[in-house]
Design a protein around this nucleic acid. Structure first.
Length: 594
RNA sequence: GGGGGCGUAGCUCAAUUGGUUAGAGUACCGGACUGUCGAUCCGGUGGUUGCGGGUUCGAGUCCCGUCGCCCUCGCCA
C-alpha cells in the first residue's frame, strides 16, 4: 500500500483514537493561520477533520503546509490528539490530527466559487462547474440519499419477485403524448428512433411475455419546456404486474414507498394512504393532487348562495355555476385589506372574476359580503362553513371549473402563508377513477386523459359515443404533499376493446397498426390482465429532502433551455456527421452570425 | 411561443433625480499573530457595468434590440 493512502476517513476519528497514527486523504476546505500554528480542515465524502501543523515540530513541513490553498488534495499523516477546546458542532470536533507528514496529491486553482455548505454562487455558474457544486455537502447528501432510496426500492421489489428488465433506449416514435427526442438512423437513412417517454409498451410486452412482475429504474425523455419539477430526461420507478387489479398495485406500491422512505430517508409515512375518487378530490380540494398536510377544504354553499341578496352569488348559481368557499381557521387577523387584495389578484389571475371574503367576529361576519349576511344569515353561512370567530372566509362564484381552479390554488396559497405546508410533514394519498377522456379545445376532439392503454372502469356498459365525459378509466395517481409522484392504471389487454378505444378517438386501424401494431398483435397470443405504475424518482427525492428543484437531486441536470453549461450540450456537429446521416439543417448553425 | 424577475470585481451585492476617479464583503496575493474552527488585524491586486445600438454636455442608471439564467402560463397521452 502506498504510504499516502488513508487509514481513516475524515469523518471517522473520535476520542477513542487518541495517540493513534493515522493518514487522511481529502480536500483543503479551510485553513487558519496563527503564526507558528496552522489549522487546516480536511474534507472528504465522510466528513471534516482538523489537522494542525506546528512550526516548532517541523519547520520545513510547516513551510510547505503554509502554501496549501483551498481545494488542494492532500494526504496527511499525523497523530490523533485531544483538542484543547472541543468543537461541538462537528462530529470529529473532539480531536485533531497533529501533522507529521504531508503529500500534496493535487494542487487546485482558486475555485470560481467557494465550496461552502450554503450555495452562494448563481445556479448557472454552479452548473458550469457542476463537479465543484457536487463537492458541497448538501448536494452530496442528496445524491447519497437518492442512492439509498433507490437501493431500498430495488431490494423491496427484488424481495417481492420483480425482475429488473432493461428496455430499449432507441425505440419507436409515437404521435400521442409529449414531443419525442429523435435519433437519426445511419443504417436506415431518412428514418429515426425516438428516445422513450416511458417504457410503457415494452413493460406491457413483458407481461405478455409472462414475466408477471417487471420493474426498472428507467430513464425517460420528453422534449417539452422545462420547469423546476421537470427535466428533459428524468427517472422513474417503473413497474408492471400481471393478474392484478387496482387494490393489488396500490397496496404493493404503498408498501414500497413506505419502505423506501423509511430506509432511504428515515421518514415514517403515515398509513394507510387515503384514497379519493377523482370527482371527490376535485370537489374537496379543487385539484386532482390534493395537499393533505392541512384541511381548509372547499365547501359548497351553492344552496345558500341561491337565495342570497348578493347578486354575484345568486347569479352564479342561476346560470348553472356553483359557489364554494374555504375557511382559514384563525386567519382573520393575519390578512390585512392589502393581503386580501393580493389574494383577490391571485384568484383573478386564475380565472375568477373576483373574490368574496368575510372575517368572522363575535358579532357576525364583516367584509365584502358582510352586508348580505347580517344576523341569522351570517350565522347560517358560518355554520355551513364550520367557521368560528377569528376565521377568514374566502368565496368564489363561477363555473365549477373556474371555482375549483381558483379556490384550489388559493387554498394552497393561503395554506402556505399560514405555515401549514411544513416541508418536514409528509401526507400521501391515492386519486382513483380519473376520466378516461378529456376534451381538447384546440383540436376540438376527445383525447386520452391518461394513456391509450388504460382500461375503462366498466367494460360492458361503457358507451364512449354518448357518455364520453363520464367514462372512468382504471387509472390511479399517487400524490404526496400536492405533488403528483406516480401515475398508473390497469391496462386494456383485449385487442377488441383497445381497437374500440382507438377507433373512438379517430385513430384509424392503419394508424393503430403503424404505431402500436406490435402491442396489439401480441395480445392475439394471450395477454394477461395486467397493470402497473411509474413513480418519479427525482420528484420523490426532492420532496423527501425538502429541496426546491429536481435539479438539486440530479447529478448533472440541464437548464430551463435544456442545455448543459458544463459540457455545452447540445452543440453543433461536423457537417460530415450530418452527411453520413443524410441530414440537412434548415437553419444555419447558431453562433455563425448568419 | 406568451408573461415576469435578474445580469456591475473570481463570487455575493451596493451605487441618491442621469452627474466627481463605479464601492463594500468575500475569495486571491503579501504582512502580523501559538488554539483557531466562516479566526482576527494591516496592506495590496482585481471592472469591456452580459453584448450591440440610440438619446444626452454626460448613461451602471433612460430607450430599442439581442444573449444568458431563474420563475411561470401554454405544453408535458
Amino acid at each position: 500500500m502506498a504510504s499516502w493512502q488513508r487509514t481513516h476517513t475524515c469523518g471517522a476519528l473520535r476520542a477513542d483514537s487518541i495517540d493513534a497514527t493515522v493518514v487522511l486523504n481529502g480536500w483543503i476546505e479551510n485553513h487558519r493561520h496563527h503564526g507558528a500554528l496552522l489549522f487546516v480542515d480536511v474534507r472528504d465524502r465522510y466528513g471534516v477533520t482538523q489537522v494542525v501543523f506546528q512550526q516548532e515540530f517541523d519547520g520545513a513541513l510547516f513551510e510547505r503546509a503554509r502554501r496549501l490553498g483551498a481545494e488542494d488534495v492532500i494526504s496527511v499523516k499525523g497523530v490523533v490528539a485531544r483538542r484543547e477546546k472541543a468543537n461541538a458542532e462537528r462530529a470529529t470536533g473532539e480531536i485533531e490530527v497533529l501533522a507529521r507528514e504531508l503529500v500534496v496529491l493535487a494542487e487546485a486553482e482558486p475555485p470560481p466559487f467557494e465550496v461552502l455548505d450554503v450555495a452562494e454562487a448563481n445556479e448557472e455558474l454552479r452548473m458550469r462547474y457542476r463537479y465543484l457544486d457536487l463537492r458541497r455537502r448538501p448536494l452530496q447528501n442528496a445524491l447519497l440519499k437518492r442512492a439509498g432510496f433507490v437501493t431500498a426500492i430495488r431490494n423491496f421489489l427484488a424481495a417481492e419477485g420483480f425482475i429488473d428488465v432493461e428496455t430499449p433506449i432507441l425505440t419507436k416514435s409515437t404521435p400521442e403524448g409529449a414531443r419525442d427526442y429523435l435519433v437519426p438512423s445511419r443504417v436506415n437513412p431518412g428514418t429515426f428512433y425516438a428516445l422513450p417517454q416511458s417504457p410503457q409498451i415494452f413493460k406491457q410486452l413483458c407481461m405478455v411475455a409472462g414475466l408477471e412482475r417487471y420493474y426498472q429504474i428507467a430513464r425517460c425523455f420528453r422534449d417539452e419546456d422545462l420547469r423546476a419539477d421537470r427535466q428533459p430526461e428524468f427517472t422513474q420507478i417503473d413497474l408492471e404486474m400481471s393478474f392484478v387489479e387496482e387494490p393489488d398495485v396500490i397496496a404493493l406500491v404503498e408498501r414500497m414507498v413506505v419502505a423506501g422512505f423509511r430506509e432511504g430517508f428515515g421518514i415514517e409515512l403515515p398509513q394507510p394512504f387515503p384514497r379519493f375518487d377523482y370527482e371527490d378530490a376535485m370537489a374537496r380540494y379543487g385539484c386532482d393532487k390534493p395537499d393533505l398536510r392541512f384541511g381548509m377544504t372547499l365547501i359548497d354553499v351553492s344552496a345558500l348562495a341561491a337565495r342570497s341578496d348578493f347578486k354575484v352569488f345568486r347569479g352564479a348559481v342561476e346560470s348553472g355555476g356553483i359557489v364554494k368557499g374555504i375557511c382559514a381557521v384563525g386567519a382573520a387577523e393575519k390578512f390585512s385589506r392589502k393581503g386580501i387584495d393580493e389574494l383577490t389578484a391571485f384568484a383573478v389571475a386564475r380565472g375568477a372574476k373576483g373574490l368574496a371574503w368575510a372575517k368572522v367576529t363575535q358579532n357576525g361576519v364583516e367584509g365584502s359580503i358582510g352586508k348580505f349576511y347580517e344576523g341569522d344569515k351570517g350565522k347560517e353561512l358560518c355554520a355551513a362553513m364550520g367557521a368560528s370567530p377569528g376565521d377568514l372566509l374566502l368565496f368564489c362564484a363561477d363555473s365549477k371549473k373556474v371555482v375549483h381552479k381558483a379556490l384550489g390554488d388559493l387554498r394552497l396559497e393561503v395554506g402556505g402563508k399560514l405555515g401549514l405546508r411544513d416541508q418536514k410533514v409528509f401526507r400521501c394519498c391515492w386519486v382513483l377513477n380519473f376520466p378516461m377522456f378529456e376534451w381538447n379545445e384546440e383540436h376540438a376532439r376527445w383525447q386520452f386523459a391518461h394513456n391509450p392503454f388504460s382500461a375503462p372502469v366498466d367494460w360492458d356498459v361503457a358507451d364512449f359515443e354518448t357518455d364520453t365525459a363520464n367514462i372512468r378509466s382504471r387509472a390511479y395517481d399517487f400524490v404526496m404533499n400536492g405533488w403528483e409522484l406516480g401515475s398508473g392504471s390497469i391496462r386494456i389487454h383485449k385487442p377488441a376493446l383497445q381497437a374500440k378505444v382507438f377507433q373512438f378517438l379517430g385513430i384509424t386501424p392503419e394508424q393503430q397498426r403503424a404505431n402500436f401494431g406490435f402491442l396489439l398483435d401480441s395480445y392475439r397470443y394471450g395477454g394477461p390482465p395486467h397493470g402497473g405504475i411509474a413513480l418519479g424518482v427525482d420528484r420523490l427525492v426532492t420532496l423527501a429532502l425538502g429541496m426546491d428543484s429536481i435539479r438539486d437531486v440530479i447529478a448533472f441536470p440541464k437548464t430551463a433551455r435544456a442545455t448543459d453549461p458544463m459540457s455545452d450540450a447540445p452543440s453543433v456537429v461536423a457537417k460530415a456527421q450530418l452527411d453520413e446521416l443524410k441530414i440537412q439543417c434548415s437553419v444555419p448553425p447558431p453562433g455563425t452570425g448568419a
